[in-house]
């Protein structure tokens, strides 16, 4: 006891100041307040999978935008003299196991055999079109279709579900009966019939995906709004004289937004898959336009001899799907930590 006291430095009175006791500041919160979005962003940043997903999406989107311009070939330029060349990349051509040296599966250097001096990074297809340009052109179209379909789902779904839940009663009843019937029809069948009637094309594929796509969004928004609209803060807002528009805009939508974003995030890979699927059953984008699905589908006919025609677009579509799913999972955990398991 005494030992410790001796070790203390000299404490003089002037080292102390009277504490400032201000009762009005007792309740003050120190530090910045963390809002919903900030909180979500903090959790998302910690999620390795989601970050990887975001990076992949950014890289692939940039490639989809700039990829086709990175060499001098256009996606529809045909030249049979250079058809069916395997991939050859300057610099990487000497790394044997990558298979980027222009040698096909029979061990013949096709570039030498055909006397081609140029490099085709992803090889060429049966018409001699540059596969690199086509793959990124296809990614562009696949992404465009997916984003457009997701946007339409978002608009219709939020409006439909929101109106249904907000106005309730008879409106809700009628709107929900309509949904019940629509849910009973397999969406696959509707999509196929829809495209059969309108000739296959970017627009008809987007519309076909949107025909059934919005239902999931509508149901989620309805459920959320139903849950929220009877809570006290909405009642308080109404008591203060807020209009319907203000209640929806300021209170309901911000609270449902997290769920909406998550749902949209999962709609996108779904749309990418369905678009590719349609190409497989012959209802996809028509040549010379190409989507990832139609490029893969075309490649399948010569898979055994020219695997590069399937390999590269397959990798791109798989990466896209993985990335969107990872970000979707990450967002779900970030917005709703209760769901996190």
């Amino acid at each position: 006891m005494s030992m410790r006291q001796e070790q203390l430095p000299d404490l003089t009175d002037d080292m102390f100041q009277p504490a400032d006791i201000d009762s009005s500041k007792n309740e003050e919160i120190a530090g910045e307040s963390t809002g919903f979005w900030k909180d979500a962003w903090r959790r998302l940043r910690k999620n390795l999978g989601a970050i990887i997903g975001i990076v992949i999406i950014v890289v692939l989107s940039l490639l989809a935008i700039f990829g086709p311009m990175m060499n001098e070939y256009s996606y529809h330029e045909q030249d049979l003299m250079r058809a069916k060349l395997p991939a050859k990349v300057p610099g990487l051509e000497n790394v044997g196991f990558l298979g980027l040296n222009g040698v096909d599966i029979r061990g013949v250097d096709q570039y030498e055999a055909k006397g081609v001096d140029e490099y085709f990074w992803f090889g060429t297809d049966e018409f001699g079109r540059d596969q690199w340009t086509r793959v990124w052109q296809g990614t562009r179209i696949s992404l465009f279709i997916a984003l457009a379909a997701a946007f339409i789902d978002f608009v219709i779904g939020v409006a439909y579900g929101g109106i249904s839940a907000f106005y309730g009663g008879r409106v809700d009843n009628i709107l929900q009966r309509i949904i019940e019937v629509l849910v009973g029809i397999p969406n696959l069948i509707l999509i196929i019939l829809f495209i059969l009637i309108f000739e296959p094309g970017i627009l008809s594929i987007i519309l076909a995906l949107a025909v059934t796509g919005w239902i999931g969004m509508a149901r989620i928004v309805r459920g959320q709004v139903l849950k929220l609209k009877n809570q006290e803060f909405v009642l308080a807002s109404r008591t203060l004289g807020a209009s319907d528009g203000r209640v929806i805009g300021r209170h309901l939508i911000p609270n449902v937004l997290g769920q909406i974003i998550i749902t949209t995030m999962f709609t996108i890979p779904n749309a990418i898959f369905f678009e590719a699927f349609l190409s497989f059953i012959g209802l996809g984008i028509r040549p010379p336009e190409a989507s990832l699905g139609s490029i893969i589908n075309n490649g399948f006919s010569s898979l055994q001899i020219y695997p590069h025609l399937v390999l590269y677009p397959s990798i791109v579509i798989s990466l896209l799907m993985i990335a969107f799913n990872l970000v979707g999972d990450g967002l779900r955990d970030a917005f709703d930590p209760k769901l996190r398991k």
Partner: peptide, 18 residues
């Protein structure tokens, strides 16, 4: 599981075939 959900069945099929 994430790979299984994400990678389309036709890609898996193509890779296996090859």
């Amino acid at each position: 599981a994430v790979l299984g959900i994400s990678i389309p069945s036709f890609v898996i099929a193509g890779m296996m075939q090859y």
